[in-house]
Design a protein around this nucleic acid. Structure first.
Lengths: 198, 198, 198, 198
DNA sequence: CATGAATGAGCTTTCATTCAT
DNA sequence: TATGAATGAAAGCTCATTCAT
């Protein structure tokens, strides 16, 4: 971020640029994602892009981060909302939210997931998201001892979150229609609860 | 592939090019992966590259496919080798092989995994690999009814393979040192067997 | 110059801009001499620059002119100060002043000399300075016939001033440590007096 | 230089590029000296420029060096040619050659001199040329003790060469018609011989 | 008068690809 | 078949300048 946007107009410009990048990515693909196209679609000049982003990559990173923050916020909100009667309920809520988060805007989500792989080294928002989900489950598992038959070690938390999110990621990237079926969600919950139960 | 290499010399050249691509990718990163560098490292002229590959992307695809084929072959060989006394043994063998496959040449594996994400649409070798692993487990589960408490539906097989491979992929891409620990492998096995048991 | 600065505040702003340009030039080099940097260092907005200068080049020209005016003023003052007992004394005074003028702020002087070369066509302040120095010597040579063995023709005056200033310029641009030695000044005086004497 | 030109065709291309740069510089000025124009005038593609020059600046440097090498070669050849009967003859020969070297292709020479100022820091060919001329005179002064009344110290040689070349440079850059007059050359010789004589 | 966000023309440079040798 | 010089489209990015506030 080159500038701290103080004026509200600037914030709108930044949003427009990120949104434009998402749309161009969706419409024309990654190869065709040029600064000129982003600027045109955002309705700003190329110069304006560089007023707020140090380079083209930064736009993509911002897009990836934004998408992930939305997902993280949704999961957190959902967890906060429920008053779980059992540990399973927490798991079910997290998984339902994650799956739901990837269902709409499928193509965008897919592309973001694909691009994110490339930026993995420069951007740890993916790890952050997964760890945050892991923390939520660990916290829940502490509140509800009935949920787990054994204490959730860091390794177990790691495996659980990566497995669940990895399966969803696969479904998104592979264009699997499975993502829309209730069975998929059901099986994910089974996987998680079976694992937690031991 | 522009030509079907009949002569052994041609096959050696192709191998050299793919290997060179892997080395350049590893040493200089994705951005610096140019045809000129690949040719130089492979010890051939740029023209020769285009004798065997229609374009640069094809080299990368070939690299990705080769890596995956190696892994698939290893898994298949391991399964064929064992005479499982129980279903769990099959699962354990598959997981051990997968984890072992990603342990050496870490950086290359990571980069291939990252690049593969980009090519997901043009290349289904990833889906093929995962499905093959799934098929092996399904076949094993048929041979050893003790392994599963219920028939393994396609969705269940999908979730199981994507979860396991997704977790390994995460560990590789996130540079997680966890990949080298026996606990990681142990937890993956636990995840799989718990899920299969129901 | 876009405006004739009547208010003292404006004059201060103009000075600040020119000084800022000199500092940026010195610190970051010619390539990095941007209007944004000049404005920042001068503590004014970019808009204010264009209030007083029609374009970037004008700032540089103003800087070059200012430096030269300072030198010309110094030489004139020095000549006016002395009451020469001989022609040689005049020459010595001019040369001493010129060399002394280039000794401090060496890097700035050097850069100004280098930039000035580029603007030679649009800016005749260099010719003016050299001609003024020439005129001073011619005038002195008239007052003190002992100084020259022959009347100083325009060509001779031209050669004399360009030779002396050219040698100093070379020393400045070549970073020659020679500039600081008394021998250098001494030799310049010798050159001039020998030439004048015929 | 990016490549060592082995093929004669490559040498021709390099020459064409340098010559094209000189022509564009002459016709359109420094600001308009773009790689595209150079390539077009040279009759090659832009890519070919970068096959032989690492960047645009390098073309200009090559041009500057070439011009200076030509001059240095001329001076050396002339000195070698003559069998001086007196020291003055050497000086006269050097000065005549230098002045003659700057007389034709005036505009190009002027522009090269102007651009050279900018590159002074990155390119010492100017210092080299001047020092070489100085060495020639020092050598001559040793062979012909009648030429000088005192041994030529390094400082004296420095002052002499810079003064003479500085005066010529001024005449070129200032568009002085004086350059074409015999008086100018005459006065330069006078300056040099008077100085040498003491 | 001062500001600085917005502009966009136009630059340099890269590199996949071709094809004459 | 192998070569690698030549190509040139096209990209990212800068920065002098404007003008609405």
């Amino acid at each position: 971020m080159r500038k701290i946007p103080t004026q509200p107009r600037a914030a709108a410009t930044i949003d427009a640029i990120i949104e434009a990048a998402a749309q161009v990515l969706r419409k024309d693909g990654e190869e065709a994602l040029t600064t000129a196209k982003i600027a045109a679609r955002a309705g700003v000049s190329i110069g304006s892009i560089y007023q707020y982003f140090p380079n083209k990559d930064a736009i993509l990173l911002a897009l990836i981060r934004r998408e992930r923050e939305l997902i993280a916020a949704e999961v957190a909100a959902r967890i906060a909302d429920i008053n779980p009667q059992s540990g399973e309920e927490v798991v079910r809520a997290v998984i339902a939210t994650l799956v739901a988060a990837f269902r709409p805007r499928r193509k965008r989500r897919k592309l973001v997931a694909m691009m994110a792989a490339l930026s993995a080294d420069r951007d740890d928002s993916g790890v952050l998201l997964r760890d945050r989900v892991g923390d939520l489950i660990v916290a829940a598992s502490r509140r509800r001892p009935d949920m787990v038959s054994r204490p959730l070690t860091p390794t177990a938390a790691y495996v659980l979150t990566r497995a669940v999110i990895g399966a969803i990621r696969s479904a998104v990237v592979e264009n699997a229609k499975i993502l829309d079926t209730p069975e998929f969600e059901e099986e994910l919950c089974r996987l998680a609860t079976a694992y937690l139960r031991g």
